[in-house]
């Protein structure tokens, strides 16, 4: 943990910062996977993490909602604050953090239950609905946000696993937004999908930006360029460059970034 003076020194004094990370290091047993990374995630914006495989972008993403806690050998140091509150502090319940920072995974992973049960699971465990009607309302709203409502409204009690790959992923997004998170983390959400489904998801991300800050890890530079306002480039565990998406793609300051986006490394 960094002490407060260093923290203040490094803190960008911007009001619209949702999550700010300072001096984050991650170790898998003896492997140093993330090396001293500083990032500010801004509110109501899409931030994308790009970089070659194994550069640590997914690992870093998982730090933001403490999913790395579930891996025994993984150790995280450094300071990550959400709205100024240290998320790794002892008094923070990781479970509540994850309700505020939702996550969508690489492979669509709906529960082998009905569509309705998939979406209502989060609200149920967080006690968000008092009545069945309220729950129905949440489910409908979330499915609409996930741009899935029209396709599934007649078969809410059909199994979620019966949907197509793209629909499953949108179901997972609807499921994640049902808990009313403030930040939505997406770990390569389109890598298992075909181009049409990918386009639908990208469209959805743009809409989600109205209500959430979205952080997306992607392999596709085109996708990063299309959907995000800010981009971070990771390489070998280092954050090489972070800035406005347009600037990163048109006028990178670091030579490694340039090599990557022009396809010479990665």
């Amino acid at each position: 943990m960094l002490d407060n003076t260093i923290y203040n020194e490094r803190l960008d004094t911007m009001n619209d910062v949702k999550i700010s990370a300072r001096g984050v290091n991650v170790f898998y047993a003896d492997t140093h996977a993330i090396k001293d990374v500083d990032v500010d995630i801004k509110d109501k914006m899409v931030t994308s993490f790009i970089g070659p495989s194994g550069c640590g972008k997914s690992t870093f993403l998982r730090c933001l909602n403490r999913m790395n806690d579930t891996i025994d050998i993984c150790r995280v140091t450094g300071d990550i604050r959400m709205d100024g509150q240290d998320i790794n502090a002892k008094e923070v319940d990781p479970v509540q953090l994850r309700a505020k920072v939702g996550m969508v995974f690489q492979k669509p992973n709906p529960f082998p239950k009905s569509i309705y049960d998939n979406v209502s699971y989060g609200p149920r465990i967080h006690g968000m609905a008092r009545t069945k009607a309220e729950m129905d309302e949440i489910v409908e709203k979330s499915l609409r946000r996930g741009a899935l409502w029209d396709e599934v409204k007649d078969r809410l009690h059909a199994p979620g696993t019966g949907l197509s790959g793209g629909q499953q992923q949108r179901l997972c997004i609807a499921r994640a937004v049902a808990t009313e998170p403030q930040v939505l983390l997406m770990d390569e959400p389109c890598s298992a999908l075909d181009p049409i489904a990918t386009a639908q998801i990208e469209e959805l991300i743009e809409e989600l930006r109205q209500n959430f800050s979205v952080v997306i890890v992607t392999h596709s530079m085109q996708q990063a360029a299309r959907v995000s306002q800010r981009t971070a480039f990771f390489h070998l565990g280092n954050l090489v460059e972070y800035g406005e998406t347009g600037q990163i793609f048109t006028n990178p300051t670091d030579s490694r970034t340039e090599s990557y986006i022009t396809g010479r490394i990665g």
Partner: peptide
Amino acid sequence: VPPSIRDAALGLGASKTQAVFHHVLPL
């Protein structure tokens, strides 16, 4: 039971115990 099911539950803010008893054990 694939780990993705556990991840899905944890990612929604279920505790580990909830993930196991609500999803993994029934499966």
